[in-house]
Write a protein that binds this DNA or RNA. Structure first.
Lengths: 342, 342
DNA sequence: TGTTAGCACTCAATAATCAAGAGTGCTAAC
DNA sequence: GTTAGCACTCTTGATTATTGAGTGCTAACA
């Protein structure tokens, strides 16, 4: 269903006005705008048409019109151009991220902060479980009488560690020897591919410390399997308090507790998407709880991994700004993460 | 200023009633209670006295009374007994913490969750920067062409790591040798205590890799100095939405944004306290922003370190429960943390 | 045929008024 | 010292006007 130019212009005006004020917008408000030189009466006719077609709706008879979700969808699909960040803003962000390029956590933290600060919406990022199938190095560092630290470095450069008890009779040199044997046997593979013959080698090396073998194998296995959690960060939750649509405490609580729980967020965002920005407007979200807000999201690809990054805001959202900002930030972040994983 | 038994009883009744309902409580409501067998009129007289003395106040002429902050303070100081957790609850918590004793983060996370779930207030924990003055072991693990991972284990068993670039000509064996030399020279000390003569040893070892020396020293220094951040966790922020005193959006926003910022929290909690639970009621907090709520807190001592743990709630707080629960949880957590740090 | 001014009508939001109810303080009796 | 009784106060909630923004329709105009 195509709209003629004039209707488009009016629809856009209404949307921009409504997004800015959160109030139904009347014909006179539109007539006052410079870019439109029509009388209020004419606009009323057009608005009536647009309502008929489903792009606008009226909260009640004597109020102005607000864009329907279908109207917003039309706008987003057919009329909107994203407002990306300026070159300047992007390099500024990039520089500020480069400052803490050695700390993965800080980079991501800063990105979500940046996103929610720029847009005043709730920002989130979901990073995939880091993949590390293979062991690169194993160390056993004596800490004190009867206690050592097991340190594993994986092929992705991830460091796992855990304290484990050892017999107090064991010497640092023995520990080192054991770790070296483990390293040698396990390098380039995971525990699963450990063969009986290799186990024999380990056993032999550890004649004196039978119990330590079990404990080590168990700990290594545990670390390799349980450390690959997804990482989720949310920022700017408080931003939604300012949105007038959530002045209703009941709603506010429902949405805050929805977003507070990271599991919910994971369910909210569709997966399997490319780098284009996706938009879910209100009812387009699957679960009823999430149908009171909109979601702007994008895939995040870096060194063969896929994460998600996005924004949550009211249905009356500045989609052009949200989508543009998100896309710019995604690009910068992907670069940086690639850089970090070399 | 001592109160006679009857006044105390009435004051307590009013406080408990007010804390439960958030409504001013009238003389008849008190008269109805079983434990008090006095007529409403008598109670009115007593209440009038208590108001005169400053323990109660009246929102307006024909409303009931509410306890003043001075009244709450008196109650907390002179009348209240803490409601600690039951033995059962404590062992249940302890067991659940022991399950994840290998992950420091998870333990703390679970504790704040437990606290806010039990009390319905906002819980927080501030852990001190981990002290690690001394290096115990240094590793250089080759990751790929031109890139290695530097891993440092400190005396507290903390593991620091960072990727660093190396010449692609360098062999794994050389890397290991370099790391061993570093380990040997630096073991048991920090970078600060590195002497010129020791630097010479390192230089010699690294004839082939002059640039690596600088890069390594710099990275080690950086890691040792910048990794000792305080750790703050907050949980149950959403709990305060339910408190009727914060139904006013303006206040809600002010308090949420105060607590959202971890720096603010750090400033809020007084330091240098022992293990007894401290209580700050409303205006007793220093900064005006924080005078609209109460704070229940305690020091957290484990293996020679000092952290803080506490709860934030409305002035109309169940201090007896908050203080008791906090104290029990603190005790359990201290045990566990001691255990973890052996 | 498309545009616009004019006007009656609608309906939410705000203000104003009123009644009900909870609570107090005071007085007089027990 | 305690209590019943009563007049008085003040919030709360409901009800009713009032206001004003906005529409839809009609008729006139270009």
């Amino acid at each position: 269903m195509e709209l003629d130019e004039r209707k488009k212009k009016i629809l856009e005006s209404i949307i921009r006005d409504y997004v800015a004020t959160a109030e139904p917008v009347g014909s006179r408000a539109i007539a006052r705008k410079e870019e439109i030189h029509l009388s209020a009466a004419t606009i009323r006719n057009e608005m009536s048409d647009l309502e008929q077609m489903g792009y606008l709706e009226q909260p009640h008879t004597s109020a102005g019109r607000i864009p329907s979700q279908m109207g917003l969808r039309y706008f987003v699909d057919c009329m909107m151009t994203q407002e990306t960040l300026t070159e300047q803003e992007m390099t500024s962000l990039r520089n500020s991220l480069l400052q803490q390029i050695n700390n993965w956590n800080d980079v991501v933290q800063e990105v979500v902060q940046f996103l929610s600060r720029m847009t005043n919406y709730v920002s989130f990022i979901i990073l995939p479980a880091l993949r590390f199938e293979q062991i690169r190095n194993i160390q056993l560092v004596p800490l004190q009488e009867g206690l050592a630290l097991l340190v594993i470095v994986t092929d992705m450069g991830v460091v796992l560690h855990q304290k484990i008890p050892v017999a107090s009779s064991i010497t640092p040199e023995e520990l080192q020897a054991i770790a070296q044997t483990f390293s040698r046997v396990l390098r380039g593979r995971g525990l699963n591919s450990l063969h009986r013959s290799q186990l024999e080698i380990l056993k032999e090396q550890m004649l004196k410390e039978k119990r330590l073998l079990d404990s080590l194998l168990e700990t290594i296995d545990h670390l390799m399997n349980n450390s690959r959690e997804e990482k989720i960060m949310i920022n700017g939750l408080m931003n939604i308090i300012n949105e007038p649509e959530f002045k209703n405490l009941e709603q506010l609580r429902s949405i805050l507790s929805l977003l507070e729980e990271q599991e919910n967020l994971k369910r909210l965002v569709p997966d399997s998407m490319g780098s284009e920005v996706g938009i879910r407007i209100g009812k387009e979200n699957k679960e009823t709880d999430s149908q009171q807000f909109s979601l702007v999201f994008s895939g995040l690809r870096f060194s063969e991994q896929i994460g998600k990054i996005g924004l949550v805001g009211p249905i009356r959202m500045e989609y052009w700004k949200a989508a543009g900002t998100l896309d710019s930030v995604r690009a910068v972040l992907e670069d940086i993460l690639d850089e970090m994983n070399r």
